[in-house]
Design a protein around this nucleic acid. Structure first.
Lengths: 236, 236
DNA sequence: TGTACATCAGTGAACGCGCGTTCACTGATGTAC
DNA sequence: TGTACATCAGTGAACGCGCGTTCACTGATGTAC
């Protein structure tokens, strides 16, 4: 999708086939993982002969790069939409301005569970050779910016650590977002902690353990919720 | 290694060749990732012909399973050794009994950085079909048990959460370790948080960001250090 | 409106490759008397 | 100590497969006059 303004019938057709190829590619990735992706297999599934796909993609690598870019865009969109929705819902009176982290967190988890292999295509095991093209960095920064917009400007514990100072010097990763240092750290920690629980869940490392990953995710999230103090207060 | 008591020369030879095969396998995995592992390529590197390896492994799958098991064992050993070393060093007088989490954390990070693809073989993107054999679960539990031994029995914030109760009901994952619920949660969180930072670092997701992953790792770790209160106190 | 031409989607054959795996066999190493 | 036998490591040929990718080509779709 988002192949930009197609006008002539031929252009429309091309765009449609390109996305059809991608759809089959995602299906194949979800079934057997990204390393099993094969142009010939996709062609066969579409009722085409192998070389036909070379009208649409220069090769396997270009297709995969396209998929990765789409995955990033999809996550960025999901994040932005969740952010806007939560922003609108509390337009009336409620607590703090801006979207809240809980909404973003659940959007992230939903997006990941929706297609675990798509999550892993972005955040999973890297293939030693591959280096992401530059325009992907931009989308990653956009994701970070959305996250920073949702972070309370004064996080629960707001003392400035050495790490904060270090991050301050390297704000580029959030597109030079003008948030205070403690907020930068907060967003980064939000990201790494949720990724920690989520990636282990998606990889199935909790299945042998019997308990519910959602509870673990929620517990990690609670640490960021501004409504509850940082030391959990409920007891059982 | 640890092929168990080899006595006759032939047995010793077999064991040696088996580990030599594994060594080449690891080298290949480190270079091109686990999905690129090929029996023929290993044989060629060893100066053997392809089918020769079938004297030592029933096939590619058995070799990979062996590698995974070795990786788990290696991590368990690293953990245990770090644990014992830290235990001994403070035999004199110092603070709490038992090893401390900082030592374990750095052992983990060192082990991971030593061979990122080995880390990913365990904790990385799962291949949709594969299911780990049962004896691996045992090693994973042993790792958890070592971790639990190092957790302070009364963690920094010790109120009992609903998650604690849930974990209490599913203690199996730690080999029925007799730690209090809050400690179970603490160990689990230790694991997921460090994995969060570490896996993103190993996957190279911080390289475009310019800052030092070690600082982020240390910051996450600080939250578990009993010497420092949970809210960081230093300022800059 | 029809004709001539250009564009482009898709085909089928082919190339070269490396993979996992089997099989019948050779030659060396160990064992038993 | 030497001889007969069994064990087993390793070979080379072969099978069947699917991969990515190229190339010359046909036939349909669009464009220009």
């Amino acid at each position: 999708m988002a192949e930009s303004g197609a006008t002539t019938p031929r252009e429309r057709y091309r765009a449609q086939v390109r996305t059809e190829i991608k759809d089959h590619a995602w299906e194949q990735i979800a079934t057997a993982g990204a390393s099993a992706l094969s142009l010939n297999a996709i062609a066969k599934r579409m009722g085409l002969s192998g070389p036909a796909l070379y009208r649409y993609y220069a090769g396997r690598d270009e297709l995969i790069t396209g998929l990765i870019k789409d995955a990033y865009r999809s996550l960025a969109d999901t994040f932005r939409q969740a952010s806007e929705a939560s922003d609108a819902s509390k337009a009336g009176a409620s607590s703090a301005p801006g979207p809240d982290l809980t909404t973003l967190a659940h959007a992230l988890r939903g997006w990941a569970l929706d297609d675990p292999q798509r999550y892993f295509l972005i955040y999973g095991t890297p293939v030693p050779g591959y280096h992401a093209p530059d325009d992907i960095t931009a989308i990653a920064q956009q994701i970070m910016a959305t996250l920073l917009d949702a972070c309370p400007v004064t996080p629960p514990d707001s003392a400035v650590t050495p790490l904060d100072a270090h991050l301050e010097d390297h704000r580029q990763w959030a597109g030079d977002h003008p948030a205070p240092p403690a907020t930068l750290r907060s967003a980064l920690t939000f990201w790494t902690r949720l990724h920690g629980v989520l990636s282990l869940e998606l990889a199935g490392h909790f299945t042998g353990m019997g308990f519910d990953p959602a509870l673990l995710f929620a517990a990690e999230l609670e640490e960021f919720s501004p409504s509850t103090p940082v030391g959990r207060t409920r007891s059982a």
